[in-house]
Write a protein that binds this DNA or RNA. Structure first.
Ligand SMILES: [Mn+2]
Ligand SMILES: [Mn+2]
Ligand SMILES: [Zn+2]
Ligand SMILES: [Zn+2]
Lengths: 137, 137
DNA sequence: GTAAATTTGCAACAATGATGCGAAAATTTA
DNA sequence: TAAATTTTCGCATCATTGTTGCAAATTTAC
């Protein structure tokens, strides 16, 4: 069984053309993908709505996670940590290159804890670093 | 001279009704404001476009800064650090309450530095913490 | 292979944000 | 303070992004 098919089945998702193609895109890509990237790379094959729904279901199943960016565009990347449906626990830092604008999961860099003022209880923290990536250096 | 007028003049912005009213909103508010909040609180007085343009010019002048959120909605807050036109340098942590969904600048909590993998050069870092705020606790 | 369940594509809609342009208002000049 | 100049405002219009309902097509289960 192909890797893509395996991933879908393991996550109780029916195996369809769009899901296979989009999942393959993530497996091939070394950075994060935006909705627009996916539409472009699948080349008109699927309806815009299908792409939205596919991404949503991948997020729900814990296959991909979203990355917040400074310009408020959503990017998606594969979860390498062992996330489960409805229970993500990636807590790594994300890097956005100002040169090539690629978004990269720094899987080995954990989001540091910060001491909050009295009364604040943290639940989850995100950290995004901008700069120059190893390739553009 | 009123405080609001003073701020506008200091930043070389002509003093207009919309700018005064929106600036006053920021001065009164203890959390960050979204575009929609501002439209609501000014009560139909100004065109939607005017609000957009006012916020843009405040950002350009270094009077307010944007806060990235996980759900892709833009929030704005007063710069308390000494930002200048075209050169922001707030680097504090932001807190978003999961209960009241207020967004708060933690001006005294500096974004910590992280050690990046070899080849990555950081330029700027953002950190957003979700949880329960002091009021909702 | 057939029936049931799920997914897809289309149409329609809502929200958000940008731009051009003439009218209105604010600032500068005299 | 009045006229001239500069800036801003409001409106119309458009683009992009994302959501929902529903019938047709596809996938899965039997
Ligand atoms: Mn990641
Ligand atoms: Mn802030
Ligand atoms: Zn790069
Ligand atoms: Zn709260």
């Amino acid at each position: 069984m192909k890797q893509v098919e395996e991933i879908l089945k393991k996550n109780h998702l029916s195996v369809t053309g769009s899901r296979q193609k989009i999942m393959q895109l993530f497996l091939n890509s070394n950075g994060a993908l935006a909705h627009a990237d996916i539409e472009k790379k699948t080349g008109e094959s699927f309806d815009r709505v299908t792409v939205y729904r596919t991404l949503q279901s991948f997020v729900e199943k814990g296959i991909i996670h979203l990355i917040p960016t400074r310009d408020n565009s959503i990017k998606y990347a594969l979860c390498k940590d062992d996330c489960e449906a409805g229970h993500h626990h990636d807590n790594h830092v994300h890097f956005i290159c100002d040169e090539c604008s690629k978004t990269i999961c720094l899987d080995d860099v954990t989001v540091p804890q910060v001491k909050l003022p009295k009364g604040f209880t943290p639940q989850h923290a995100e950290m995004v670093v901008n700069g120059i990536c190893e390739e553009c250096k």
